[in-house]
Amino acid sequence: MAELIIITALLPLTALMLVTQTNPYHALVIRGILGAIAALVYALFGAADVALTEALVGTMLSITLYAVAVRSSMSFRLGVLEPGDEVLPEAIATALRQGLQRHHLRLERVGYGSEEALEGAIARQEVHAIFQSSAPATVADAQDRSAQTSAASHPPQLHIRLPRLHSLLQGELSPELAHLKLYES
């Protein structure tokens, strides 16, 4: 009789573990553990059909669906110009990635062919932010810029569409690395 009570007590214990998780991916794994324990408890009390449903639908199907949903929704889509490696410096990408990771988001880069396409993408709400380097567009401009030695006076700009993301990233990215701006259409 005692082991019946102990096994049943494991169910609220794992449920508490589940609701105290903050990282959505950790919560998914704990949800799997909760499902396994729940199936055990249901089988212990003789409800074989409920246990089977919990294991197949509650654990396997729902975890897979939620994993795909969380993975595709919790991402920060950043529009960059097409040759992505040169346009987005690794220092900024790393700083962004670390800042976003603190809020369980991940960085996803979307490449575009031209400045106009980039502007259009943020206007159509395809991306959450666009990255505009202060790199020159024309040759004459380039000569003009090479005269200026300090590149730090013109940091690249990050236009962010959503105020919440803007305020989240405000403290994470240093101003001389990239200048954060709230995008207004």
């Binding site: 960059v80 097409e82 992505g84 490696d85 987005l88 690794e90 990408a93 960085l107 996803e108 880069r109 979307v110 490449g111 575009y112 062919g113 396409a117 259009g120 993408a121 395809e126």
Partner: peptide, 10 residues
């Protein structure tokens, strides 16, 4: 590799 992350669009 960073280049793998770029998804081509538009």
């Amino acid at each position: 590799r960073g280049s793998q992350e770029v998804r081509h669009r538009g």
